[in-house]
């Protein structure tokens, strides 16, 4: 099983808060991290490799500093890391990102399985995985919560639905996007960290992956952001006073419409 895992570097939003006075984002000390869902995709890839043999390659599209998440991926069990990076990719929407990752994947050879996170926490679109599969013309399943078995060129997985889950069988090669229920990611081993330090991260440009310049970056993006604004703060805030009992009574009064 040769597995490709797509990993995105995202800003860690843990400490991000809206400054209520200026209504701007307090961004001090926000670091870049591996997209949390992708960590689970990587872990699943490493587990599958451990059970079935093969290789795990981590792929990321992003600025040069995204190399860090690929080293981290190697520390957590990936064999290789490949970064596609080019200023021409800037402004890519999910269409252009799917295209770019597909070109990169194709330039790397063939894979039996591709894994993505369900969504990236900066954009929250969950569109790149399906888009990538569609570019590569392979079947895919989103929101996989469990890989049940892999046998004879087919795999059986559980796909999380809004009301439960479906058990689905699909042929390989295929792409899965995973939710965090699927596994508990390991922490990097000391040996892994050493390997990560020394690893050669391959870096590819738009030309290296033979991307059509009309299909990448802003030029290749059918959607365009035309306006960005901070959501208006809620205007209607009430803090009750009095004894707890009085406060609860006031609340019940307010909630009458829901009773």
């Amino acid at each position: 099983m040769d597995i490709l895992v797509c990993i995105k570097q995202v800003p860690d939003t843990k400490d991000v808060r809206l400054d209520p006075k200026t209504n701007t984002m307090a961004r001090e000390g926000v670091e870049s991290i591996m997209n949390p869902f992708d960590r689970h995709a990587l872990e699943e890839a490493v587990r599958i490799k451990e059970a079935h043999g093969g290789t795990v390659t981590a792929l990321s599209m992003g600025p040069p500093q995204a190399e860090a998440v690929l080293r981290e991926a190697i520390a957590c069990g990936a064999d290789d890391g490949v970064l596609v990076s080019d200023r021409a990719f800037a402004g890519a929407d999910t269409w252009a990102t799917s295209y770019t990752l597909a070109k990169a994947a194709a330039s790397l050879g063939s894979f039996d399985l591709m894994l993505c996170g369900k969504q990236a926490i900066d954009g929250d679109t969950a569109q790149v995985g399906p888009g990538l599969a569609s570019q590569l013309k392979i079947p895919y399943i989103t929101c996989v919560q469990k890989v049940r078995e892999i046998e004879n060129g087919f795999m059986q997985v559980e796909r999380m639905m809004d009301d439960g889950y479906d058990v689905v069988r699909l042929p390989l090669p295929a792409l899965l996007t995973v939710v965090k229920d699927i596994n508990e990611p390991r922490v990097p081993s000391l040996k892994g960290k050493m390997r990560a330090k020394k690893a050669d991260i391959r870096c590819c440009s738009a030309a290296d992956i033979m991307a059509d310049e009309n299909c990448i970056g802003l030029a290749g993006s059918p959607t365009q952001v035309v306006k960005v604004f901070t959501p208006p703060p809620r205007g209607d805030r009430t803090v009750f006073s009095g004894t707890l009992e009085e406060q609860v009574m006031q609340l019940v009064q307010q909630l009458k419409t829901y009773l």
């Binding site: 954009g123 365009q224 952001v225 035309v226 306006k227 960005v228 901070t230």
Partner: peptide, 12 residues
Amino acid sequence: AFGGNIMATIEC
């Protein structure tokens, strides 16, 4: 977008 901190208007 960006964890709900900002809203983005998008067109095609």
